[in-house]
Design a protein around this nucleic acid. Structure first.
Length: 849
RNA sequence: GCGGGCGUGGCGGAAUGGUAGACGCAUGGCACUUAAAAUGCCUUGGGCUAGGCCCGUGCGGGUUCGAGUCCCGCCGCCCGCACCA
């Protein structure tokens, strides 16, 4: 009997699949098409075990769809632009392009060992000029359609490094390299008009039936449609041109609870005031000395500055409110100005208590204990559909829901000329300008005479220059001696190329469409996208639930508007699956100062280091290089084989949840595969006749049914658990050779999406025809699945107290009579009669005594 | 801070509102072996006055004949917050 040796069989079958061209996508009108896509990786240099899980899931789907007669497209590429390449360039004096492409080569070798069904003939990297040139072409289309435009926006500015920082490069308000206090600075930047699509992006979510509800909810909240009132306060003694302050509120029903007006430090009025008042200038400067990240803003202490200006309440001109500049108000939202109602907003309440401003409740609960905010209670913010009692109402009923009150308030205000009801969206336009080298150049030219001029399409791609350096901080493109000097495409006069490059989210917003025809001389070609789009199943991390997926949905619409995608593809991903992370224990010891020192898993045995020191163990932590709790897939494949790695990452945990990588789990998976291998040999060598052929055959059909359901519903862990159970039955079976061989061949097929190499080997061993990768998926015979007799649990007062075997279709009254006759029920009744008997056919009997 | 999610034995987890703990790991025992490894078989939520009963799905309430599942309020962890990808 030979042993299962993954190192021997895995390369063999990988070669066989390649020789047969099994995974090359081909348009085939005689088959339904299926496009499965996993979010493409950033080429960081090494495949992470998390990648293994992500790509194995897609591979299971791809192999299953191949087996069920689909023309499958399963491509792979590289999300190759971005900051890490520039960081590597600075740290190691290596060119970002060289670093990126060598990482790609390395990761591709690692990919090859996993035995995935990828069609590498369609591979591209977003940093290939062929790819980003087409992206530039689309940018020009967007520009022509008005989807791309320029406006001012704030960035994180590092005054020492003289460079723009990403949010993650700002740590506690300081630049990560220079340590300098970061400032907000305004630059003219390129934007995509995603906000024009707000309503469509919102309402189309309703049609995405195969997206997780949580992702749709997050997107809805992000787009943030709100109904509110826009109105203005008239000012008292304000500077010239500021006789009114426009505000927007979603709670106009609380207008009689107004206590102050707050404006953003970037509001035009704040900017005007800082010219005359040094204290205001100082305060505004202080506010701007904070990163642009909304999270920081929200967590920061709420601070304000009393401008001394006052506004008149629109309902009562004698009622004046103070105007504060407040650090938590963003110029990008609404009008950059709010009215504060401390009684019904926790932020406003914190602010009011700090600056001793009035707190005025406008409504209170209908009943129950309630401490009014003005008497020290918390801000009262009930859900809008809840009915409350209006103490200071001015429109609608005294007792009404927040929703009704808001509509009544809007109507009242419109009737009295105080303002207008408007629908707003939280979604802001997408700023795509980056002041960096390693990204897609924005293909426009700045001409003194003609202004902003689009590059001619025949001049695309606008390629990145190769000869750059990172010796001095800032954007290498901007300081390149010759690159930006070009003639104006319109008038031919000397002009300057745009040196901003595009956000890398642009690159990943349309790659799925490019895979349909990767070599096309236009961004897409109609034949390719018409056949392959949409993506039938998209798989990736939930961390992309909002930005990437929203941008990709927007891009599909914008591409459609420019004729790059056909009708019916505005939603590019028919089904979405968000998978969980891979986690691993963290092992650490403490240094003399009590700081943690992290240790790699291979340094730890039985909770101790080699020198015998015990380690602290932090369970289920996200894998990160700095914590050293990483698992190298190459190492796992060397030791156990790809099939074991694939099997393990899919077992144990549901795909949408995190899974903890454990050595013991990997070993168990490996042992199981070896056991299946032995069973296959035992089946091959079994006696011709045996007993229980029929039982095994029934079990085989049940396994087909259950495992198929598991694969179709992304219940890979459930499918695997079912296959374990089938394996247990098989190993105990005394069935004859034919029945055993049939059962093992089915087992190999059902396992093949997860363990393709082992399955091929067994298939061949047991005389399967051709490659298992091309064999049709086994079918379960419905007649073999029904059971004639079932076990019915009997409950007394909702607790299980017994069971009985009954015919599957026994009438309800007979079931009831039999249940009442059981010992357990008789004991519980002790001669009395039951109060109630509930019989759920085929499920349960509950006797209430 | 705001939005979204998750929480079940020693561990990973299973369970259309209907037998909580499938399946796997780890325990412990047995078989095989000179021995070990490997393999196979069995055992295992906690408790008690143990062949029966009680308690158990983060905590506290509620709906229901019946709640891990639905509702309300907490606690903890994770993801996102627009320039990380």
């Amino acid at each position: 009997m030979s042993r299962y040796d993954a190192r021997e069989i895995e390369p063999k079958w990988q070669k066989a699949w390649a020789a047969a061209g099994c995974f090359t996508a081909r348009r085939d009108p005689s088959k339904p098409k299926y496009y499965v896509l996993e979010m493409f990786p950033y080429p960081s240099g090494n495949l992470h075990i998390g990648h293994v899980r992500n790509y194995t899931m897609g591979d299971v789907v791809a192999r299953y769809k191949l087996a069920t007669g689909h023309a499958v497209l399963h491509p792979m590429g590289w999300d190759a632009f971005g900051l890490p390449a520039e960081n590597a360039a600075m740290e190691r004096r290596i060119h970002p392009g060289d670093w990126t492409y060598s990482n790609i080569a390395n990761m591709k070798d690692q990919f090859a060992r996993l035995g995935l069904t990828l069609d590498w003939s369609r591979e591209f990297a977003t940093c290939d000029p062929e790819y980003y040139g087409q992206q530039q072409s689309m940018f020009l289309d967007f520009l022509e359609k008005g989807i791309a435009y320029r406006k001012n926006a704030v960035v994180n500015w590092d005054p020492v490094d003289m460079t723009v920082l990403a949010n993650e490069q700002v740590e506690d308000g300081r630049g990560w390299r220079s340590g300098a206090l970061v400032e907000r600075r305004e630059l003219t930047q390129w934007f995509f008009r995603i906000s024009d699509y707000s309503e469509d992006l919102l309402s189309a979510l309703d049609g995405l039936d195969n997206w997780p509800e949580k992702v749709k909810t997050m997107q809805r909240n992000w787009i943030g449609r709100s109904r509110g009132l826009q109105f203005s306060f008239s000012t008292v003694d304000a500077p010239e041109g500021f006789d009114r302050i426009e505000v927007y509120t979603t709670r106009p029903d609380t207008m009689l609870g107004a206590s102050f007006v707050g404006i953003s430090p970037d509001h035009p009025l704040a900017r005007q005031l800082e010219r005359e008042a040094p204290e205001i200038a100082a305060f505004n400067a202080e506010c701007r000395r904070m990163g642009t990240a909304e999270e920081d803003l929200e967590k920061a202490e709420k601070r304000g500055f009393d401008t001394g200006l006052r506004v008149r309440h629109p309902f009562d001109t004698a009622w004046e409110l103070p105007v504060y500049i407040a650090n938590f108000i963003l110029m990008d939202y609404g009008t950059g100005a709010i009215f504060g109602c401390p009684a019904h907003d926790p932020r406003d309440l914190e602010f009011a208590r700090k600056y001793d401003l009035p707190v005025i409740s406008t409504f209170a609960p209908e009943s129950g204990d309630h401490t009014l905010p003005e008497e020290g209670g918390p801000a009262y913010v009930p859900p809008k559909p809840e009915t409350v009692h209006y103490i200071r109402g001015f429109a609608g009923d005294e007792h009404q829901t927040g929703e009704a009150a808001i509509e009544a308030a809007i109507t009242f205000c419109e009737t009295n000329g105080v303002g207008q009801g408007v629908t707003r969206y939280r979604l802001r336009d997408w700023g795509i300008s980056r002041q960096r080298y390693w990204g897609c150049p924005i293909p426009v030219v700045h001409c003194d005479a003609c202004g902003v001029v689009p590059e001619k399409k025949e001049n695309l791609p606008v390629e990145l220059p190769r000869d750059i350096d990172f010796d001095t901080p800032g954007n290498p493109l901007a300081r390149h001696p010759t690159w930006s000097s070009v003639p104006c495409p319109a008038c031919g006069a000397p002009a300057r190329r745009e040196t901003d490059t595009m956000d890398t989210f642009v690159d990943s917003s349309w790659y799925y469409a490019r895979f349909a025809s990767p070599g096309a001389k236009t961004p897409t070609d109609p034949e390719g996208v018409e056949y392959w789009m949409n993506v039938d199943q998209y798989i990736g991390g939930v961390e992309h639930a909002i930005l990437h997926l929203l941008y990709a949905r927007f891009f599909a619409r914008a591409m459609q508007a420019c004729g790059h995608l056909p009708q019916g593809t505005s939603e590019p991903f028919d089904a979405l699956f968000t998978q969980g992370m891979l986690t691993h224990e963290i092992y650490l010891t403490r240094d003399a100062e009590g700081r943690p020192v992290y240790h790699y898993p291979h340094e730890v045995t039985d909770g101790k280091l080699a020198d015998g020191r015990p380690v602290e163990i932090v369970p289920s932590a996200k894998m990160s290089k700095s914590k050293r709790n990483v698992v190298d897939p190459v190492d796992i494949i060397d030791r156990f084989g790809a099939d074991t790695a694939r099997w393990f990452v899919l077992s144990d945990s549901p795909p949408e949840r995190d899974v903890e990588w454990t050595e013991a789990g990997a070993e168990a998976a490996s042992r199981h595969l070896a056991r299946v291998w032995r069973l296959a040999q035992a089946a091959r060598d079994a006696d011709e006749t045996g007993s229980g052929d029929e039982d095994l055959e029934r079990e085989r059909h049940r396994a087909i049914h259950d495992a198929t359901m598991g694969v179709e519903s992304f219940g890979f862990n459930a499918a695997i658990a079912r296959l374990y159970a089938f394996t247990n039955v098989l190993s105990k079976s005394k069935a004859g050779r034919a029945a055993q061989v049939r059962a093992v061949r089915t087992l190999a097929q059902l396992m093949s999406p997860m363990t393709p190499h082992l399955s091929e080997e067994i298939w061949q061993m047991l005389g399967g025809e051709g490659l298992i990768a091309r064999a049709p998926w086994p079918q379960a015979d419905p007649a073999m699945l029904v059971e004639d007799e079932i076990t019915l649990p009997i409950q007394i007062n909702g607790k299980r107290r017994g069971e009985m075997r009954v015919a599957r279709d026994l009438p309800k009254d007979v079931v009831e009579a039999q249940a009442l006759a059981t010992d357990a029920v008789q004991r519980a009744l002790s001669g009395g009669t039951p109060k109630k008997v509930i019989v759920v056919p085929g499920k349960i009997v509950n006797v209430v005594v």
